[in-house]
Design a protein around this nucleic acid. Structure first.
Length: 453
RNA sequence: GUGAUUGUAGCUCAGCUGGUUAGAGCGCCGGUUUGUGGAUCCGGAGGUCGCCGGUUCGAACCCGGUCUUUCACCCCA
């Protein structure tokens, strides 16, 4: 007999975890729907040609590939094997597991472009798979929870993303967090302003680590990437910039005065703020962070990242605006803005802060207990009546000692037991006992229904 | 992908420089209690020491491999 085990980086979700995860997803789903987003799903597997080349070389390595069915070696010859894994791959695998939800969404938009009404708002909550090396909070299978709107440049979308984040966090009772906001154009502007035009890629990668490794190390990294010390000097005043929203805008207008793109980024940011005000909202929780970069991805406009302040987990949500989402699939001119909640991380945060509601585990309200076959038969006749009265109820299914039945109820978190004994049967009553307080009283069924509903 | 780290009962962990039959707490099962759970006390079950191989008279302990866990890097949710 072999001991069963789980593949690296995957986990089971038991009843409690599922109840809690559904609690989070329910808040997110209802919020997305409140803002007019429609849910879609795409297959777990995609053609490898859809996935490869979209995430860079590193990303391609992290794709889970699916071996072809049947004799998957039939197209492979010795020459292929000599050329190595990369050359052989295309002959043994033509499908892979999805790596994120964005690329499948882009594929979906292109394939359905004639049936979709633009601007198209969609959300998608599905697992993705990455052949990464697992660590705490990083798994090989995890859920992503994306919302995107494509086919419009309106900054209303950005404003609504901020509102949705605030809505979800309020529903989850999270009160101490910040929505970091920046604009990719500002980063481009900065690279121009420090005489390093065109190098915003490496610049972003480096300053994205500012929180983690500090200014000293970032400087080292920038120097090793061919930034001049002159550039670093010019960059320095931005590092410790601590003004309020308006103050930062003022500073950057001056700093970026020579950069058209940079000023455009500032203008977009101001318009975003104005849009929120126009909606009767405000800039609560929003933190304009000039150093927010979000790696090297395809973002071209606003970028967001959300951090819960008193928790040990990194960002729990992020996103941004991109031009040309669908370009690689031959449909250009579709721009959009999207963001995503890290459900697994939110779970960890809520657990750490003890914010899951008591009743997230839905269980029966009452367990009918009995002493003998007569009581069992009586319970059998009652259990459906409880259910028809809308009360989650169950009958202990075996003849067993009362102690065992009560312990069963206690362990499952069932708050009441109903006792079906000779006394109750003869008077057509039921004794209801509150397991927490120990109080017990006999009553008619109607009274019991009223008490428990 | 690079470098570390972890694995002993259902859970959390002891187990000396290699030496008889591998332990504890909690949990579980049964009894104390034949219409009343959580407490006390008593009893019981449960481990091929992650797996494979090697060294040795002898391995939970040493060595090699492999899987898994955790961590840093890379990258990312």
């Amino acid at each position: 007999m072999q001991k069963p085990s789980l593949p690296k980086g995957t986990r089971d979700f038991g009843p409690i975890q599922m109840a809690r995860r559904n609690y989070i997803l329910d808040q997110i789903r209802s919020t997305f729907q409140l803002f007019g987003y429609n849910q879609i799903e795409t297959p777990a597997m995609e053609n490898l040609s859809t996935l490869t080349g979209k995430y860079g070389d590193e990303g391609d390595q992290l794709l889970f590939k699916i071996l072809n069915s049947g004799d998957y070696l039939k197209n492979v010859n010795a020459a292929d094997l000599e050329k190595g894994a990369a050359a052989t791959l295309s002959k043994v695998s033509e499908k892979g597991l999805r790596y994120d939800l964005t690329v499948p969404f882009a594929r979906f938009v292109v394939m359905n472009r004639n049936d979709l009404t633009f601007p198209f708002k969609r959300f998608q909550i599905q697992p993705v798979w990455r052949a990464d090396r697992p660590q705490k909070g990083r798994y090989r299978e995890f859920y992503q929870c994306d919302a995107d709107v494509v086919g419009t440049d309106s900054l209303v979308c950005e404003a609504e993303i901020i509102l949705m984040i605030r809505e979800v966090f309020a529903k989850l009772k999270l009160t101490d967090y910040s929505i970091k906001l920046n604009n990719r154009k500002i980063l481009t502007g900065i690279s121009e302003a420090i005489d390093a035009a065109g190098k915003e890629g490496p610049l972003c990668v480096a300053i994205d680590k500012l929180d983690k490794i500090g200014w000293e190390k970032v400087q080292e990294e920038l120097l090793s990437r061919d930034f001049s010390s002159n550039s670093l000097e010019k960059l320095e005043p931005l590092i410790n910039l601590s003004e309020d929203f308006a103050g930062k805008i003022q500073f950057l207008k001056k700093f970026l005065s020579g950069s058209e793109v940079g000023l455009q980024g500032i203008a977009e940011l101001e318009e975003l703020a104005a849009t929120l005000i126009g909606m009767g909202e405000n800039l609560d929780f929003v933190d304009f962070d000039v150093m927010l970069a979000r790696g090297l991805s395809y973002y071209t406009g606003a970028i967001f990242e959300v951090k819960v302040n008193n928790a040990s987990i990194g960002s729990v949500s992020g996103g941004g605006r991109y031009d040309n989402l669908t370009g690689v699939f031959g449909l250009s001119g579709v721009s959009g803005v999207g963001f995503s909640f890290g459900v697994d991380r939110l779970y960890d945060v809520l657990e750490e802060l003890n914010l899951f509601p008591e009743e997230s585990l839905q269980t029966s309200k009452i367990l009918l207990c009995h002493f003998d076959e007569k009581g069992f038969a009586y319970g059998l006749s009652l259990v459906q009546r409880f259910r028809k009265a809308g009360i989650k109820a169950e009958l202990y299914p075996d003849l067993a000692k009362v102690k065992k039945q009560f312990e069963f109820a206690t362990k499952k978190g069932i708050p009441f037991v109903g006792i079906c004994g000779d006394n109750e049967i003869s008077e057509n009553l039921i004794s209801i006992k509150n397991l927490e307080t120990g109080n017990q009283e006999s009553m008619t069924l109607e009274t019991a229904f009223a008490k428990l509903s």
